[in-house]
Computed example of a mutant assay.
Amino acid sequence: MTAVGVPGLDVPDSRGRTGLDRVGRDLTGNPDVVVRDVELLASGWHVLRRTTFDQRRRDGRWTTEQRETYDRGNGATLLPYDTARRTVLLTRQFRFPAYVNGSPDGMLVEAAAGLLDDQDPASAIRREAAEELGVAVGALEHVFDVFMSPGSVTERVSFFAAPYTPADRVSAGGGLAEEGEDIEVLELDVDEALAMVDDGRIADAKTIMLLQWAVLRGPFRA
């Protein structure tokens, strides 16, 4: 009888990946956590795993825990700003997860962002700025790196800011149609963008973080 391989484990899945159940098994940085097993639950475009581990609590007791983690890779996001005109460049696009969880129309105003796709964060965000915003950005300022939803999603996002002028617009932007993107580019006064945070028109975490950084410690600080 011929053994049948499992895609993503011992035979390649649709993206050519194997060994997806090996991630996390060799972690040794925390002596109070011992990984016992990693199960592959799903491997569509991204990867869902269930990990069983022993954890020593603060009172010394050991317990066995299970956590599901969604691995979509790491990402980068960018806030382009023009201090002379006090403007920022953002996007508006449809987000189904927000739509199914209470957003009236699923249309979110966001900072440009994307997955790294095997690039370093700076190169990836330059790519996204060109694709989504139609802007060729110059010098990038690395703001911080953030785990956006550490209870269940492994993604770490690198945050950047960069100056721009109208002369830096090289295309209309809008994203890649072949990837299902249909992105509207918004140029907003920074004070209007902050007002949109206050009244809920901007409800995206990375965008709120970048706007608040911009006025507290970044280019628009008093």
Rank of each mutant, 00 (worst) to 15 (best):
F147A: 15
G106P: 04
L90E: 01
N101K: 08
R95K: 08
T165D: 07
R169E: 07
D120W: 00
V137S: 07
F94A: 12
R169T: 11
A167Q: 12
E128L: 05
A98G: 02
A161Q: 09
V137K: 03
G106T: 09
S171N: 09
E155R: 10
F160L: 03
P121S: 10
V100F: 03
Q93F: 14
G75V: 09
Y99G: 07
A172D: 13
L186C: 06
G106Y: 02
D145K: 04
Q93S: 15
S123P: 00
S103Q: 08
A167P: 00
L176V: 11
D105T: 11
P150W: 13
F160M: 04
N101R: 13
A139G: 04
P166K: 08
G102E: 11
D191H: 04
A172T: 12
E181C: 11
R95I: 12
S103M: 02
D145R: 10
V157G: 00
G174T: 14
E184Q: 15
F96V: 12
L79Y: 11
R169Y: 07
L140A: 05
E181G: 11
D189A: 08
I125N: 04
A122S: 10
V137N: 06
H142T: 05
L186M: 08
D117S: 05
V157Y: 02
R72Q: 15
A136E: 11
Q93E: 15
E181M: 15
A162T: 09
G114K: 11
T154V: 12
R85M: 04
A177V: 15
G134H: 01
F144H: 07
D117H: 10
M148N: 10
L176T: 10
A129S: 15
F159Y: 15
E187A: 09
L78K: 01
P97I: 05
R92E: 15
Q93T: 15
E178L: 13
G138L: 03
A172I: 04
A84D: 14
P97L: 06
A122R: 01
A162S: 14
L90A: 06
V153E: 11
E131H: 12
E155A: 15
G138V: 01
A167N: 08
E155F: 05
G138H: 03
V157F: 01
E187N: 07
A161K: 09
M107R: 13
V190I: 13
P97M: 05
T83Y: 00
V190L: 02
T91A: 09
T154N: 06
S152I: 14
F96E: 14
S103R: 03
A112L: 00
A130T: 13
L78E: 06
E141R: 06
A167E: 14
D182K: 08
D118W: 03
